[in-house]
Nucleic acid binder design. Structure first.
Lengths: 232, 232
DNA sequence: ACAAAAGTGTTCTGTCTACACCCATGC
DNA sequence: GCATGGGTGTAGACAGAACACTTTTGT
């Protein structure tokens, strides 16, 4: 049978993916925005994204766009929500499958935002009004991150391979917008048995340097297959 | 400026919505399936769904399809996930924005599944192999329901307006696939203050009849705006 | 020696868990 | 009066919250 005989004749919306890229740096949660060089919304900031090709699924599209626009690769990425309001794009009917990504800003700070780039990191408290319905998308992305960080070990995706306990706590405090008790936090995190202690401390500070840890991904994978649930 | 000048020239996938409709009845979680009358997958069971029109967003599309195919209206519905694999539909490139709905089966049992209808309720333990990638979609929908019922009061959407405590507990036990202690369950639910006691019991049984309750939606809305979080 | 941040244990409190007996109803 | 399922309270275990002093390091 011919594929053709099955073809749909309905009018079709355009389909894009957009990616909300979170980073964490200097005690702030940040998001990467691109300044639009074309209409509509020329000069406004928006999330990186682009059109779905016919030979890729939306995950691949989001990863591809992420790489093309920011040089970022091999990062945590997850589908967020699909936006489909009729008038969300003045050019016509566009459906956007949104994703959010978590990146280790320490690794990528240099690439995006350098020299003449039109990409820039904004602390989420200082994000300007965005193009399209991207303000709404950002709110939803932040809510997802906040909800998920408590019961999935995704916070580590925002920190360098090696991080200290105060850094990890600061990340949680920032994302959850609440203060946490130092002793209780450390106890709870270490109890999971998922941190590798490097027996190595931060040097060159005018005070005691914190110990370096890293997250044991392999162990987490094993444990979660046995029904273990991360929770903080 | 003309809208036309903005028009995208990329090839476009077709876009549909599908709806996983859950019901609860006779102590079983059930899902509504439609027997396909056309190729591809003719004769196989699949979720109700259809093409997105150019004048509706995906929420509206899902509600419309739900109503057209099952006569169901005014029910809980929520976007689940968007599926976009290149070969998921033999007819060509089709992207599906999936939704799940929770319905009070007691109200709708008669409509779907009557006489010569091609719709039927299946206990989730007895769902046959489905068309397209609908098996995968169902697994994801069940996982979402299971995850969400604990911290959002969505279980009530599956029960009649008035329900008894044993019915509610049976629903939770079924969805969560675990036994719950009767006294502790009742205590925890009543502690929320969100159940209205009708001071009325089930009659005509060969034993003590259970009391009727209903869920106080209005109070829940007020409380949740003040930061209250439902949890069971 | 002092300033600055990291590291560490214990008590208290409230929540979750486990559990057994009486009650109402229809036959 | 008996079989069936509904309703109720309490004691022990456990986890979460609160909290203060000592250690290290650079200047």
């Amino acid at each position: 049978m011919e594929t053709k005989t099955y073809c749909y004749e309905y009018p079709r919306p355009a389909v894009t993916t957009d990616c909300i890229i979170f980073g964490f740096d200097e005690g702030e949660l940040k998001v990467l925005l691109i300044k639009r060089g074309i209409e509509p919304f020329i000069g406004k900031w928006a999330f990186p994204g682009g059109f779905l090709q016919m030979d890729e699924n939306s995950d691949q599209c989001a990863l591809r766009e992420l790489y093309e626009e920011t040089g970022v690769k091999n990062v945590f990425i997850e589908q967020l929500y699909t936006f489909s309001d009729v008038d969300r794009d003045p050019r016509g009917r566009v459906i956007t499958i949104s994703y959010y990504a978590l990146i280790k800003l320490s690794d990528y700070r240099l690439k995006a935002g350098d020299d003449a780039s039109n990409a820039e990191w904004f602390p989420i408290s200082k994000v300007p009004p965005l193009a399209f319905d991207h303000d709404r998308i950002l709110r939803i992305a932040i809510a997802r991150l906040r909800g998920k960080i408590r019961y999935q070990p995704i916070g580590f995706e925002l920190l360098p391979e090696k991080f200290t306990m105060p850094e990890l706590q600061s990340l949680y405090e920032t994302v959850l917008e609440m203060q946490l008790d130092r002793r209780n936090f450390r106890k709870k995190i270490l109890e999971t048995g998922l941190l590798i202690d490097h027996n190595e401390t931060v040097k060159g500070l005018p005070h005691k340097g914190a110990k370096y840890f890293s997250f044991d991904k392999k162990k987490y994978k094993e444990l979660s297959e046995k029904g273990f649930n991360f929770e903080i």
